[in-house]
Every structure is written in structure tokens, then in C-alpha cells.
Amino acid sequence: MGYVRLVRSGGLHCSSNAARFIPDLQDVVSLVQLCEDAHVSAETIRAAENLDAVINSLTRNFHQDTDYFKLLVDVFAPALRDNKNSHLKNFYLIIPAMTVNFVEHSLAAKDNMSKKNRTGAAFTDDGFAMGLAYMLKVLNQNSSFDSLHWWSGVRRRFIKEREKVEQQRQSGSGVDDKLQQTLALTLSRLQHYQQEFELLYLSVSSARVFFRGDWPVVPNNNNNNNTSTTHSQ
């Protein structure tokens, strides 16, 4: 998918550079018609026909609204949904574990940004979200994954963990400074993890739009005051 996006962007860039000499892409004048009205020679008309063909090709490529993501789905969906790949029917069940692994990897990559040795450092990565949305669409498992209520479950878990740490901090106030520091670090870690899960949720939700999939179910949360990010459907 990244290669397709790269090729498509390169094609648009090339077409835009070549089309910048055309005065109006919305209203392209036919040179053949102008030559015929001017009663020029046959050779000139043939040259005008060639130029018209080139201009039409440029404008068509520049305005072509080809949904390459849909093409990728249409090509691979029949093969991956075939009985020979029946083991993929449960693909959606491994997504929670994959998201946990990705969040840990993303946090480690962001942490490396502030280090002297930035090997493996990164501040953003939409490849996993795009791939996940693509596989869910190809395997027709958007509804199955939504039925797990994974995102709302993760959110509730972090809310409970943060509330537990906050209670410990309040009950142990002024007793042990080291304990307070440990609880503060734990709370900070939980906030970072929750924020990363929220960002991944938004990335996956946005990526699913590219594949014309149904919007993921956004769970109702009565503890909005405890979340760092709110969502609207």
C-alpha cells in the first residue's frame, strides 16, 4: 500500500509539472478545431491531433479519480477469503495483541528521539494502522473486530488503573516520598500508554475511511472527565 501511495503521488507530481503549461485544465481548447477553422495544411492538423492527444492524456491523468485502495481490496479479497485461507477467518482475534505490541514499539521509538543514539527513533508511524484497516476490509472482518469492543475495554482498563493509583497517592500523602515518586511515575506511564492507544484508535478509524469501510463503533464512556481524549462519532 505504501508503494501504491508512493507511485500515485509521484504520478500526480509528474502530471502537475507537465500540465503547468496548459492555461486552463477545466476548459481545454481543441487545437485541431482551431487548425481546421484556420484552413491550415494537413501536416499541421496531424501535428495538432498529436498535441491534443498528449494534452488529453495529461488532463485525464491529472484528474483521474482512481481509488487504488479499492482496487487493492478487489484484487486480493477473493483469494484471502477463499476456503484455502480459512485460518484467516479468525484474524481479528489477534489484533488486540498486535496493538499492544505496536503501542510498546511506538513508545520506545518516541523515547529514542530524545537520546543521543537515535537508532529506531520515530515520532509517527501510520503503516500499522493502514495495514490493519486494509486487512479488516479485505477479510470483511470490520464488524467482527468491532464486536470485541477492544478500544473501549482498553480505555476502561486505563481509567481504573489511574483511579487506583490516584487513590494510593491520596491515602499515602505525606507518608513515604519514595512511594509517592513511584506512584507518580506509574501514573505518568499509564497516561502515556493511554494516549498512545487513543492515537492508534484515531489512526485506525481514519485509515478505514480510505477503504470505504463502516465507521468503527465509538463506545459511550461515562467517565469522560478521566480520559485525556474524547471522541465523537
Rank of each mutant, 00 (worst) to 15 (best):
G120I: 05
L148D: 07
K84F: 07
F123A: 14
V54S: 00
M1N: 02
V40H: 07
K89L: 04
H105V: 00
F197Y: 13
Q141V: 05
L107S: 07
V29C: 01
P219K: 07
S147M: 12
D125S: 13
R208L: 08
K116Q: 10
T124P: 01
V204S: 02
A77T: 06
Q26Y: 04
N223Q: 09
L6C: 09
M135C: 11
S106Y: 05
F76E: 04
Q181A: 13
M113I: 12
F211K: 03
S203D: 10
A184T: 14
N61D: 02
F62N: 00
L12G: 00
D67G: 03
S228I: 10
D74F: 03
A133F: 04
A184N: 12
K70Q: 14
A122H: 06
G153E: 10
L190M: 10
N220S: 09
A77Q: 13
A53S: 11
Q26V: 00
N85R: 09
I45G: 02
R5C: 05
A97M: 14
L80Q: 04
V32C: 05
Y193P: 00
W215I: 12
Q180H: 15
H63E: 01
T227C: 15
A129P: 02
K115E: 04
N142A: 07
L187H: 11
A18M: 13
S203M: 07
S86C: 10
V154L: 11
R46E: 13
V209S: 09
T59W: 01
L200C: 09
D125E: 11
H231Y: 13
P96W: 15
S15W: 04
G11F: 10
A18P: 02
F145M: 07
R8N: 05
S205W: 03
S143A: 13
L202K: 05
K137H: 00
A207F: 01
S16F: 11
F210K: 05
Q194I: 01
A129C: 06
V40S: 03
L199D: 09
V28P: 00
M130N: 08
D82A: 15
T119A: 07
S144T: 08
K89P: 02
A97R: 15
R20Q: 10
L88P: 03
S228L: 14
Y193L: 14
C14H: 01
K115Q: 12
E163D: 15
A19Q: 00
I94L: 12
S9T: 10
L148G: 07
S152F: 06
F158T: 06
D37G: 03
L51K: 06
I55Q: 03
D74I: 01
L93M: 11
D214K: 13
L202N: 03
R212K: 08
R60H: 05
R157T: 11
P219Y: 02
S232M: 11
M98L: 13
Q170G: 04
D24N: 09
A133Q: 02
